[in-house]
Design a binder for these strands. Structure first.
Lengths: 261, 261
DNA sequence: ATTCTTCAAATCGTCGACGATTTTATGAGC
DNA sequence: GCTCATAAAATCGTCGACGATTTGAAGAAT
């Protein structure tokens, strides 16, 4: 509701004459070619990212409905593409698609949360072990650079920024494992974890987490697989334990939540 | 306008079910049973399964094109639903969706194959370790039942049947781990592995694999986590090593490959 | 005869529309 | 005043259609 009905697709042309370029395919309309990359080329990614960021920044609390017509007019595309994005979001467990009842932001249950963290521990343990075997000196340098970024983000005290750097760190460590498949699975899990952490984390243990990250890098750089796995496990267990169950709520329009308009 | 309150498009009346996942919620069994379960209820699952089985049984070799219009007329649905299924198949890495160029059956490269098996070893190791902790006596009985099925399938000498039982075994062991997320990931990986094995396996080592399965169950039943993980790892390494690179090819129509018509 | 150009056929991406289902608003009945 | 039945609105699932892109083949030039 409260939907401003003024938004309309840029070019409908429909049945009337002069429909020179009515049906816009994946063509970038060969403009200057610059803005096309982010502007009109991959609209799907933009929608996905908007919803994803909205969920991560708590503008879209769990249970928020995401009606297809609303997203259509917000992004100026047809339902076909919106529906495709929603399917991808459902697959990544960001939203839940209830048949004939629309899409809502996923609300992980405590039990689900436990399983997610358990799965994440298993994957990160395996990947850290691979990382110890396969890392090079240059990799360690890059990890140290990331740790430095974390310190800056900590000073900033803006939680989403810190969460972003922390996520980057874990993904980078996982990338050292050299297995794209496990990395893809872990990326999915880290997204879901971030979603949960963004909801429940009291926000204020960044320093503690940063210390643990440093431990992990130290163990990897020394080639101590056992200690690296143990440090990662301890870090993840600590992260899970810091979660408490409180859920803020607010009432805004979908456009506001998506940081549009 | 638009009278005809009773006239319906040719094949409707039941297509509106539209449940996406395997779990079908509202069971409207009032239609006196028209084989709705397999006939016209969940068409998407039927299409998915047809392609999946076709790939697994080598009727659909890698690189086979899957044009949307062909699938549409084969299954009597519109392109929207076919497209949805193809997206799901792409996500599960069964097919590859090239923009504007159609879908083809995925052809895993040797490098990819190595990574897939590596990921699978990591996941199954973690799950077997969980299974050792959480299994009950009844679970062991069921595993023994599965092993007995394997012996029957071995005598049958029909490779797809054996592959099916072997897959069941791994999935059942993984289910004992009690983590639906890891189980889902492993299901995906086992599908991809089966696809690869179906392509390359010389077919004839069933007895050897069965022995290794027995070892795994034995270790689990005795609560020996270390040995269970080692047995699983050895089993998977052996499976990977038995793969050679030969690829049969034949020329049939899509309908024949899908075992229709 | 080979190669490049040109054209037609096949196929894909997106759109608007229609029926079916769910949700919400309204009014009768207790 | 509250509850339940009814109707209207909103939303979802599917379909056919249109334009754009790719593919494959026919024809001209060297």
């Amino acid at each position: 509701m409260t939907q401003t009905p003024s938004a309309k697709p840029r070019k409908t042309a429909s049945t009337a004459a002069g429909a020179r370029k009515a049906g816009r395919g994946p063509a970038k309309t060969d403009m200057a070619g610059i803005a096309a990359v982010d502007g009109g080329a991959d609209v799907e990614q933009r929608i996905y990212q908007s919803v994803f960021d909205g969920v991560l920044n708590q503008r879209l609390p769990p249970g928020t409905k995401l009606p297809e017509p609303a997203l259509c007019s917000l992004f100026g595309v047809s339902r076909a593409v919106v529906r495709k994005v929603l399917q991808r979001l459902e697959h990544d467990r960001i939203v839940e698609l209830r048949p004939n009842r629309g899409a809502v932001v996923a609300a992980p249950t405590p039990e689900e949360t436990r399983k997610i963290f358990e799965a994440r521990r298993a994957l990160e343990a395996a990947l850290v072990e691979l990382a110890v075997q396969r890392h090079s000196g240059k990799d360690i340098e890059e990890l140290h650079a990331l740790l430095h970024q974390e310190e800056e983000a900590m000073a900033n005290a803006y939680q989403p920024a810190w969460a972003q750097t922390a996520r980057n760190f874990h993904l980078r460590v996982a990338a050292l494992g050299g297995n794209p498949i496990l990395l893809a699975y872990l990326t999915e899990l880290i997204s879901r974890c971030s979603l949960i952490v963004a909801l429940y984390e009291p926000a204020g243990n960044a320093a503690c987490e940063h210390e643990e990250h440093c431990d992990i890098v130290d163990a990897i750089s020394k080639g101590d697989a056992k200690r690296a796995v143990a440090a990662m496990n301890a870090h993840l267990v600590g992260l899970e334990e810091r979660i408490c169950l409180e859920r803020p709520s607010s009432v805004k329009t979908l456009a506001q939540m998506l940081n549009l308009a």
